[in-house]
Every structure is written in C-alpha cells, then in structure tokens.
Write a protein that binds this DNA or RNA. Structure first.
Lengths: 347, 347
DNA sequence: TACGTCTGTCGAAGCGCTTCAATTCGGTTC
DNA sequence: GAACCGAATTGAAGCGCTTCGACAGACGTA
C-alpha cells in the first residue's frame, strides 16, 4: 500500500502539503499541486480510509437502515436504497447497509463508533423505537417516512394525504360517487406505518368535501385476497365505480378479476393506482396512477442529510441546520384505467 | 466520546489489557476481565471504528456491489442484499452498499483504501469488467453468479443448468413432448449474464436426452410482450403444452392470457416457473416452480468470504483458502400449475 | 531601509486503537 | 534457596492521516 508519506517523498514536498492538495483546505501553488497530483497518479495512491477517519473524526459514510420485512412493495425499497447509494457517491460518501434485524441498537452502534457520520432511516413507524435514540444522539439523521411526532426531526416522504385527496378528486371529476380504497395488508396498518393511514385520511377528507362515498378495505398481496376483497366491496356497495389501489401487488389480480366478471376498465370501473410508474405501465391496461417517487425520496434524503453532516464536521461550528419536513407533492398521471362514471340506472 | 484509555483508567488497568479483553487475543484473568467489562458498560464505551481499522488494518466491512439496473427481478436482488447484510452481522461485519454506477473502479477504490476487507459482487456477467481488478487485487472476493472463466475465483449461484434440466424432466415425466422456454428480456441475453444462457443449455441438454422438442423465446416484462410471445409460440408450435417461465414478471400476464384463450392450467397447459417461492404462491394459480434461493445465495456468499477475510487478516499467514465454485442444487416444488399432457388427437 | 502582510509550505502533535516485547509475580523444580 | 517457568499484565511504538501554529520569502507600504 502506498502511503501519503511516500507520495510526499516522491513529489519532494511534506506530508501536510499532500494532504492539503487532497483536501483543498489550504491554497497550494499551481506547480506544487501539479507535481503532487502526478505523484499520486504515478504511485496509484489511495488514501487510507481508517487513518482518515481517525484523524478527521469523520468516516464519510452514511448509514442506511432498511426494513427487514418484505410485506411492503419491495422494488420501492430497492429503488430508494439505490438512489441513496448513488446520490451519496455524488457527495463523495459511501453507504453502509443496515437491516432492521439488529433493532434500535444498531443506531447507537454505528454512529457511536464513528462508523457512520449520519443515518437515513427507512420504513419509519408512527411510534418508532429508534426515535428516542436519534433524539439523544448528536448525529445527523433523516427519516424516510413520517412518525407521529416530528419535533426535532428531518423527514422526507410522499405527501400521502395529498395523494389520497388527489385520487378522489380525479375520480370525482369523472363523475364517480362511490369509491373504494383498496389498501395495504392488514399487518401494515397494525404496525402504524403512517403512510397508509395518511392516505385514508386524505381520501376521506376530500371525499367528504366532494360528497363521494368511500369504502376502505385492507388487502393482502395475493390473488385470493384480492378476489375476496373485491367481492365484498361489490356486495356491500354495488354502485362502486371508482377504485383507488394502494397495494401494488394486487393490481394484476384485480385487472384479471374485473375482466372475468365482465367489467370493462375504464367503462365500468375506473382504477387509480398508487405505485411506481413502471408498475402502472406494465400491466394489460396502462393505469392512471399517482407515482411513488422512490428515487426522488432517496435522493432528497441524502441531500437533506449532507448539510447537517457538513455542519457537524466543522467541529459543531457552522450554525445547526434547521429541521425540516419535506413532503413531496403527488403527481397524478392519467392513463387508460380511468374514465367517466357509468350512468348506471341513476341518470 | 469515551475512549479505551478512559475505560482503562476507570477499571484500573492498562489500555492494552482493555484491548485484549475486547479482542480475546490474550488470556485475561476472570476478575480483571469482569472489572473491565463493567467499566465498559458503565461508561457506555464503543470502540472507535476508524482507530481500530487503522491499527489493525482491517475495517470489518464487506462491500456488496449491486447492479444498478432493474431489468431483472428486483426482489431477488433485494433478498440477496438483505441476506448478505444479516449474515455479515452474524460475523460481526458490516456491509457497504455499492452500485454498479461507479463501474469497476469502485472495486479498486473500496478495497484499495482499506474501506472494505472484501467484496461480494452481484449480477456478474460472463466477461465481467470487474474480473481483471479482482485478479490483481489481493483482497478476498466472492461472486454471486458465474463468469465464463472462473479460474482463481470463488462463486456461488443457483445451478441453472440443473434447473433447466429439472424443469424439462418434470414436464417430460408428465408426458409433455413440446415445451417452450419463456426467457428473460432480450437485453439480459445481450449482456451475457450467464444464468439465462445456462438455463437454456440445461433445458436443451435434457430435452435432447428425453426426446422433447424445445422452443426458446426471450420476453420483456410486460403484458403486451407476453401476449406477443405466447401468440408466436402457439402459432409456430401449436402442440406446445409445457411452459418453462424464467421471467417472473410475466407470470401474471401469462395466466391471464391463457385463461382468456380458454386454455386451462394445468389441463391444457402446464407451467413451471423459475422464481422465488413467494411469487409462485401468490398468483391465481399456485405455480409449480424451481425456487431461486436468494437468501441462501446471500448467506453463502458471506460464509464463503469470511474464511478468506480471516486468513488475510493473519497478516497473510494461515494458508490461503482454496477457490471454490458453489452451485446450489435446484429444488422443484410441484404445485397446481403442472399436470399430465393433454392427449391432443395423438393418442 | 525597515515594517507589516500575505502566500505557500513545513514540522510536529495527536486521533484511538492494536500488538509486540518486556516485565512482574506466584508457583515449581532441583 | 537459586533458577526457572508460565500466566497475566504493561509500556511503548506505531498505524496513516489531518490540522494547527510556525515560518520563510515575496510583496507592498511608509
């Protein structure tokens, strides 16, 4: 392994000069800088991460804590993780992957040992067990998702209340008066994951304002579950013509079932999905949908955490970065799965 | 931050004693050990990762390089990653998440800087650009997937040749004489990702032995693509009664299409899927499938890399761990999507 | 000419840990 | 009772980098 000292000798300068060339924290004359840079290249020098972390007390690593469970739409998680990793690299940081496995203690271990400079937490629950640790720790963190109490926290999430409102609004404008919200698996609600509840709240709120009737039903991610849920909905509210689907994994089954029952989409039933765009476009019918901006969430999480890391880096100088809740506004894309409500013997 | 020196003072011993208690590399008397451990607990001491890495020249971090693209079944990638992370923690290691973004240079950067002690590479291509770097680097690595030339490499993968053979065998036993393999998207083949080719090879091989006719067609992951592919297959080989499906994302569309065409599964068409068990069980028909053992692959990758890390850690003493290709034997689970071939005017 | 100023570079301290050689000490052994 | 032993513990030397204060020299100013 080539060390900084060897580079210095090779370039005929002192070690500190090399260090300053690398960090840019002091002005170095053009010729000296070039000489050093040439030596670095010729020797194939790579700074030792451990030594750097020790001397500067910053590891340049951001920890990302993922959920271990896979009852929620996995590709979204994956996209967020990849976006976090990619964006972190743009800021010259690396990402440490933690699973929920280890529990809240992982937070302490990782930042307490200086392994990571900051944390990004995914799959935040309303009363998340990790929150107390974040509060007592001086380390920067950003949550993806919204807990019940956001005091002193920085969070980023899709605005699910607005998402719910938007879906209802779109259906209402098309004349639908009876709408069903096909939600996540019951376990997701029991865990109080926030986003599911917030969607319902938004749906109910706007439905109330627009005089639309709403039925909400959780649904597991299987064909049978979807079949049962759909049957129950149509039995309880035969006039239901608009569907908002939040559990992406039942979209395929739902389309199959409607077709089997002779209900045409969108003539007899309109569907608004809440899912990534790729999912909305790959089924047998291109779905009107509100996109889950997974990549944007991951990217914003890193961008929100970076100023904090930098502020903390200056020995705590550089005034603290204010906390911030960033709700990404939903975008609804109209595709082929929504249309005017059927007149259905009412008109 | 509490340091080791403070723990030593608090416990009334020297720093080295505390270090040895922590590492267990020297015998420490019972009473001393307990005193030190109490001090550690009382002070809430956490060893500094950077200092440890610098002094021991091991970071206790394993880098995991994921593909950036998402044209292959994402949940499998995710499961592998989570299994890697979980298993690594069982060995007291952490995982650094790298994306393909940075290219082969990431390998050099990460192990060259001592950021990670070892690498696990996913989504290996037959002629992978990262292989030369692995060969010249003294750092341990394990590949998930099989390149063309495995000399000097340790790899773990599902045995896709055996998988192909197994699928054909199962269908042949049921009397199917014409079989179609619905493969991955064309891009996957163009990239020479190995597993896709190996599956075909296995299928053809066994089909030849058993006198079964085979048609192979790549297929994108959309409903339309599946519709087209299925139509073409049935046009070219109307007698096709057995299907092997490798692109998991078209399973749903495929079942819909067959149903629409009045082909019953498994009476008129038998389907063997190559996919994770969760996918096989959640559609409208429980699918006979060969499982993709994502979690096992992730776990084994870590278990294969650990002895190498430990051997390298002993200053290169401890004889080198031999290279090894570990092919996980496929397991086929019979479910409801396969049955006896139709007699079809032949009998 | 003498002074302060600024720029570019250097020397040295030290980050918190591991590890090796050295030391202490109670217990054997002859 | 001297010589020896192994087990437990310690001291000190780094690991490779960052960073701070010092300093030499070039420059402008009085």
């Amino acid at each position: 392994m080539v060390t900084l000292a060897e580079v210095a000798r090779h370039a005929g300068v002192s070690a500190s000069t090399v260090s300053y060339v690398l960090s840019g924290k002091r002005t170095i004359s053009q010729p000296t800088r070039e000489r050093v840079e040439r030596s670095i290249r010729e020797l194939g020098y790579l700074p030792n991460a451990g030594a750097r972390a020790l001397a500067s007390s910053r590891s340049n690593i951001i920890a990302l804590m993922m959920p271990l469970r896979t009852d929620m739409y996995v590709p979204v998680m994956m996209d967020i993780a990849l976006a976090v990793a990619t964006t972190a690299r743009e800021h010259d940081r690396d990402v440490l992957l933690l699973t929920g496995q280890e529990g809240p203690a992982a937070v302490r271990r990782v930042v307490g040992s200086g392994l990571a400079d900051a944390m990004i937490l995914m799959d935040v629950e309303l009363q998340d067990a990790r929150l107390p640790l974040l509060h007592e720790s001086p380390h920067p963190s950003v949550l993806i998702g919204l807990p019940a109490d956001t005091t002193g926290l920085t969070c980023v999430d899709l605005d699910f209340v607005a998402t719910g409102r938007l879906c209802v609004e779109h259906l209402a404008e098309l004349g639908h008066r009876e709408v069903a919200l096909i939600g996540e698996a019951a376990a997701v609600y029991e865990r109080h994951t926030g986003f599911a509840e917030r969607t319902i709240a938004g749906v109910r709120e706007r439905a109330g304002e627009l005089g639309v009737r709403v039925l909400h039903r959780p649904c597991e991610g299987s064909y049978e579950a979807m079949a049962g849920t759909l049957a129950r909905i149509l039995q309880e509210r035969p006039g239901t013509s608009g569907f908002i689907v939040q559990n992406e994994s039942v979209l395929g089954p739902m389309l199959s079932l409607l077709r089997q029952q002779g209900r045409a989409v969108p003539e007899d039933a309109s569907i608004v999905a809440i899912c990534p765009d790729e999912v909305a476009t790959q089924g047998s019918v291109a779905l009107t949908s509100v996109a889950i901006p997974a990549r944007e969430m991951g990217r914003r999480a890193v961008e929100l955490v970076m100023p904090k890391v930098e502020a903390a880096g200056r020995g705590g100088h550089g005034r603290p970065v204010p906390d911030r809740i960033e709700l990404i506004p939903p975008r609804l894309t109209v595709r082929a799965s929504t249309g005017p409500a059927p007149v259905a013997g009412r008109g």
